[in-house]
Design a protein around this nucleic acid. Structure first.
Lengths: 343, 343
DNA sequence: GTTAGCACTCTTGCCACGTGAGTGCTAACG
DNA sequence: CGTTAGCACTCACGTGGCAAGAGTGCTAAC
């Protein structure tokens, strides 16, 4: 059986309508709403074929049809068109990017917020992994009489404040002297490769105790940061979808969205700049089997600096969401490239 | 009509049962569950009296009774007892406090998380207002070639990283020289009182442009930080309560919990260290009229450093929640005092 | 190949009804 | 006079039947 043009048109009609209404759609409705120039009986025949092809499903006998995961897949791969962002969307994003381009972690969080606002779906981001980042600068700053803050700037453009309790008083001068030497010693080192050696401590005559404490704190921090950081925005949007109007289903999803492990799996490990779309069952997470995720990655200097995903019911507006995500990723990667190219 | 001992016992029984089951409770149930040595008919008479006193309500004729806001108020004010924290709760908190005592903002966030875990309600916190804080230390740290991070430590024990785009290259040496002089000039100044004066700029020969940019960024940051920061934890717990099992009600609450303005009102302006309990209608927020909030404040050096509140349905376990909050506040305020006393 | 017609299916909303929990009232009891 | 047993009454809730509506599949005619 061949998937002719008319079948495609009908499939598209079903998807469009179902995405908009969340109701199964019947042959008569299609004829009424979309001017295909054929009768409902013909549509019925075509729909029967589409069902045989596995592209649409009947939730129960004698009901209308809804798209199957396979149907969405076909739509996403071949039928869907990306649109350009509107002027409002564009300037909204421009502001967010220019206000946060200096610090990737803020940028990611703000972008997630922006996405959940623009799309009315839930956005998740995975933050740059500090673990693999290299230290670019370190500065010790007095905090209170007996403790200090070690400020770490990494090559992935993140800043980390690490509190270190020295249990003894110091002065600014000592701290800035130590900072100076520390910088010459550990700049360019990956957080995971930090080690306290005799040789290193010898560079800090009189301050060995302080330096040891600082380095220990750093080492702990970098090791602790084992997992990817995950940040979620717009979870409450989930409540707006009829597929989650059953409070039990809603609870399940909320639960899943709090499980970092699941979200990491969901965002996946790929590092492409392209938009990836995972539909329904294609993710292997039981609680998420009627959710889809549209995702992409950011890069700094060719290195993956974080991922971003938009989660919604499988019945989500793929075209709208993919277009927005596409626009965002292009703009951010562009801005990041301009920055590292210019700097 | 006098509120005798027996009426009190019945009221307590109703509250306890209703808090546990969320079902209206009838006279026969009370007789069966609580050994009061009287018949259901007597209980009925007493319940009728309690209703006249406005302490309990019949949701509809010929149903059991549930406590009214006034009933909860009486319970909270006169009947409820605080318990000590269990060893587990205590050591759970001890860890969180000692791990975060150095930075109030982290401490607050972690505490909010801990509360939502311990109580299964939703916790909100208002963070220390940087606006009124005094600058204790400032340090400029190189970020990338043309931008830097200004690290600000305030007297309310918070650290702020402010990115400043210099649009020109600098070196570490210059930055640390500037930091040194800046410190001598603006330490002790409140963020809001920062001004760029001729006199001040004269202290930075050759670096006026950089200093101006830094100060402008600081001034913007402090002014922008006009509102209190609000942080929410455990919102999904709301879905567990039968009173919000209607998705529309749940949506309303989620909406309200995202409105900063409402939360600020809810947390209120008081600065007492005592636990305060606001029951149902007593807060004047329409969407929250069947929620209660239990709240308290933290102090650093006699200054309010943030508030914390626990939100749940009016049918919440006041005794449990108030006890936990009480234990937390005592411990944190104690730890903070020890710190400022010892430092 | 397309379409009109028709019988059939399944969901949904509605109504009536019985059941159970709970009340209020009255009369009797100690 | 407080307490209790008994009883009639109310109301929410679950169940089953029923009609309406949407939609299908099949068949026969165009």
């Amino acid at each position: 059986m061949v998937l002719n043009d008319r079948k495609i048109k009908i499939l598209e009609a079903i998807i469009n309508d179902y995405v908009a209404t969340a109701e199964p759609i019947g042959s008569r409705t299609i004829v009424k709403k979309y001017d295909l120039g054929i009768s409902s009986a013909t549509v019925r025949n075509e729909m029967s074929d589409l069902e045989d092809l596995g592209l649409i499903i009947q939730p129960h006998a004698s009901s209308g049809r809804i798209p199957s995961d396979k149907g969405y897949r076909l739509y996403v791969d071949s039928l869907m068109r990306y649109r350009e962002l509107t002027d409002e969307e564009g300037s909204f994003l421009r502001d967010i990017i220019s206000n946060n381009i200096n610090q990737i972690d803020y940028l990611m969080k703000e972008t997630a917020k922006a996405i959940s606002v623009l799309t009315n779906y839930t956005a998740i981001i995975s933050e740059p992994q500090v673990k693999t980042a290299k230290i670019r600068h370190i500065q010790l700053v007095p905090f209170d009489d007996k403790s200090i803050i070690a400020v770490i700037v990494t090559d992935t453009k993140t800043v980390k404040n690490i509190a270190v309790n020295l249990e003894e008083a110091t002065d600014s001068k000592t701290l800035s002297d130590i900072s100076l030497v520390l910088n010459s010693q550990i700049t360019g080192v990956s957080g995971l490769d930090l080690k306290i050696t005799e040789n290193l401590l010898n560079k800090f005559p009189g301050s060995e105790r302080i330096v040891t404490k600082v380095l220990n704190a750093l080492i702990m921090e970098f090791q602790e940061d084992e997992d990817v950081q995950i940040y979620t925005s717009g979870t409450k949007n989930i409540l707006a979808f009829p597929e989650f109007s059953n409070i039990e289903r809603a609870k399940e999803i909320f639960q899943a969205l709090e499980e970092k492990r699941l979200l990491v799996t969901l965002l996946g490990q790929t590092a492409t700049e392209d938009i990836e779309i995972v539909i329904g069952d294609e993710n292997n997470i039981e609680q998420m089997k009627n959710c889809s995720i549209i995702k992409a990655n950011f890069h700094i200097g060719g290195k993956k600096a974080g991922g971003i995903g938009i989660i919604g019911p499988t019945r989500m507006d793929y075209s709208q969401v993919a277009s927005i995500l596409n626009g965002i990723v292009k703009r951010i990667n562009g801005a990041l490239k301009a920055l590292s190219g210019g700097g």
